[in-house]
């Protein structure tokens, strides 16, 4: 509901009341949360949005019991390698995807659970030195992995039972791919950012690398979050985790950059700044809303089309916010 409730323009600056705490999930296991996500879940003919929380050694599925009240349905225990990230799979039902590893992702696993038989299983989708991964519509997962000699970029089609139906190799660029983003409205297009600050475009059906376009030197290590194709242009939402504050522009949290794939040229469209004096960001984008955790322990939310910080969620009595993710379909903002 958060995205729906955001006022269109806030000329006077951020307004805290535009984020409202809807409900709290309290985990009695005392383990530190590393990520949070949502998943569509179908049981007994009823499809609902459930919350998934991850600690280093366990992933828990929560269901809504009553308004503002959530109960833990099931916990998968993953004791060998720590969980470091959850990978949302848009429009996928009854499948939880997690990345495990130490500093880098070493494994991607699918977690399944049946309430009818009270049975669960894991299935291994990918191993290697995985640099970037994204879940796409239609149960597809794209990842880039690297050995000393070469980079592999691969799309895996997942079956409903947690297996891998099909694998399609994508042509790797020379530079390491650091992030992927689906292109809204174009099922067969995928964009990625590289360690050399380029945006690359693939054809997922053929595996072709269609275009490499330079982002510019202004902000190093740009990360793509989302892309939209419109009127022959590709609009890419980038975040800039390493950008320093400047007097003229402040610190960029997100930028929307328009690329012309036909010519490879680009132009900045919108610039979303961190609130003055703030630093640090771990960002997530849904539709045209960006959210990021700041080093102060606050969560900031931006309207990316207007370049406005629309809301700030300050640290609460329980402590500083450490992670923020949009729920599937923009149903809310999850913060941990």
């Amino acid at each position: 509901d958060v995205a729906e409730q955001l006022p269109p323009v806030l000329p006077e600056g951020p307004r805290e009341e535009s984020l409202q705490l809807v409900s709290e999930l309290k985990d009695s296991s005392c383990s530190c949360a590393v990520d949070v996500s949502t998943v569509w879940w179908e049981a007994a003919g009823c499809r609902e949005l459930r919350v998934v929380t991850a600690s280093e050694s366990a992933v828990s599925l929560w269901e809504p019991l009553a308004p503002d009240c959530w109960g833990k349905v099931y916990t998968w225990h993953l004791r060998e390698i720590p969980v470091i990230q959850m990978i949302p799979l848009p429009d996928t039902c009854n499948l939880v995807c997690v990345a495990l590893g130490e500093l880098e992702i070493g494994e991607i696993r699918l977690l399944l659970y049946s309430s009818e038989t009270d049975s669960s299983k894991h299935s291994l989708v990918k191993t290697g030195n995985i640099k970037a991964v994204v879940g796409l519509k239609d149960q597809r997962l794209v990842s880039s992995s690297r050995t000393m000699q070469e980079q592999q970029v691969e799309m895996v089609s997942l079956s409903e039972t947690g297996g891998s139906k099909d694998r399609q190799a994508l042509m790797p660029p020379e530079e390491t791919v650091t992030a992927f983003a689906e292109v809204e409205g174009m099922r067969e297009a995928l964009v990625g950012t590289t360690a050399g600050n380029s945006v690359v475009v693939w054809n997922l059906k053929t595996g072709q690398l269609l275009r490499k376009m330079h982002v510019g030197y202004s902000y190093p290590a740009s990360i793509c979050h989302r892309a939209y194709s419109d009127s022959g242009l590709l609009f890419v939402v980038l975040s800039h985790p390493l950008a320093k504050e400047s007097e003229s522009c402040g610190s960029p949290a997100f930028r929307v950059v328009a690329f012309n794939p036909h010519t490879g040229r680009s132009a900045g469209v919108m610039f979303s700044c961190l609130p003055p004096g703030c630093a640090g960001r771990q960002g997530d984008v849904w539709d045209t809303a960006g959210a990021a955790v700041l080093t102060s322990g606050a969560v900031a939310v931006w309207d990316l089309l207007r370049g406005r910080c629309a809301a700030v969620l300050h640290p609460g009595p329980a402590g500083h916010w450490a992670l923020a993710r949009w729920a599937a379909g923009g149903a809310g903002l999850l913060a941990g």
């Binding site: 067969e188 072709q208 194709s229 009127s231 242009l233 328009a258 012309n260 794939p261 036909h262 010519t263």
Partner: peptide, 23 residues
């Protein structure tokens, strides 16, 4: 963004680049 910044725009860029790019 103006066309002078970005160059000529093609609405069919995805199909055109797919036809030109190495398989």
């Amino acid at each position: 963004c103006s066309e002078s910044d970005l160059g000529p725009i093609s609405l069919n860029w995805f199909e055109e680049l797919s036809a030109e790019a190495p398989p």
